[in-house]
């Protein structure tokens, strides 16, 4: 598959969304609502659950499945209150010593007038800063689209994994094509140039692991993820907090290439 086919696969109608992962991996999921400041954002689902016998906080983008639900959930493009709800529940997780698991699937943070008025940039910035120092383990799994800052705001983690057909990019291939080639038809070239596939991310050491999709057998994916999440979180929970945070800092610190 070429890069653009991956982009199409990541966006494909019928591909499992956040709620599928939550219901198939966890038990006793309680969804909690609201950022306690403005409102509740249906583009992000958050709550607490059990991962086998381990209490965890789960946060997921939800794009919606039907057209009606997609509209309700704003196609998984969160407003500031969505990121603030996520941060509120992460802070709660920190208080109760629960690890945090994020499922990322968004074309990007909402870029409308309301989102700007309520400080989209500030909301994302605060998540980046606070997640860097959150004293409990965080694992983020990119399950579909990883669109720019809107994805990163749920992906500052100790480990970041990607589904085989997920993509992670600083700008949508369409946006890149129209800026660079002044033509939205050059999406294929842009997808290649942006290096946005899971393979690319592993090569750039931006992610730790690729989760195979086993030819679309998502029951297998859920079972695999469940095992891996449990095992990895158990390991991370055993680390002293200073080590956990130092490792997280170093994880991002080393990214970037330049010459001096």
């Amino acid at each position: 598959m070429d890069a653009y086919q991956r982009v199409q696969a990541a966006r494909k109608m019928g591909r499992p969304t956040g709620t599928d992962y939550i219901s198939n991996i966890f038990s006793d999921f309680f969804e909690f609502h609201g950022d306690r400041r403005f409102g509740d954002d249906p583009a992000i689902i958050a709550g607490i659950a059990r991962l086998d016998d381990m209490p965890v906080t789960v946060i997921a983008h939800e794009k919606g499945k039907t057209t009606k639900e997609k509209v309700l959930r704003n196609f998984g493009m969160a407003h500031p209150e969505g990121y603030r709800k996520a941060l509120r529940l992460m802070k709660q997780a920190e208080k109760f010593g629960r690890p945090v698991i994020c499922f990322v699937d968004t074309a990007g943070a909402d870029c409308g007038i309301a989102a700007e008025e309520r400080g989209q940039g500030q909301a994302i910035a605060e998540n980046l800063m606070e997640m860097m120092a959150l004293k409990v383990p965080i694992i983020s799994v990119l399950i579909g689209e990883g669109g720019s800052g809107g994805a990163l705001a749920l992906a500052v983690a100790d480990q970041v994994w990607m589904l085989e057909n997920a993509v992670y990019s600083v700008i949508s291939p369409e946006g890149c094509a129209s800026i660079l080639w002044k033509s939205p038809t050059k999406v294929k070239n842009a997808s290649e140039a942006l290096k946005l596939t899971a393979e690319d991310m592993l090569g750039l050491k931006i992610i730790e692991r690729i989760i195979p999709e086993n030819f679309g057998d998502f029951d297998w994916v859920y079972a695999t993820l469940k095992g891996l999440l449990y095992e990895t979180l158990a390991g991370l929970k055993g680390l002293p907090v200073e080590t956990l945070l130092q490792n997280r800092y170093e994880r991002f610190r080393r990214i970037g290439e330049y010459s001096e």
């Binding site: 800052g149 500052v156 990019s169 600083v170 946005l196 690319d200 800092y249 991002f252 990214i255 970037g256």
Partner: peptide, 17 residues
């Protein structure tokens, strides 16, 4: 910077840390 792809996205997290 678009031309550095996800590597430039990661700079946001790096600086924030």
């Amino acid at each position: 910077r678009m031309q550095e792809g996800t590597v430039s996205l990661m700079q946001m997290a790096k600086v924030s840390g």
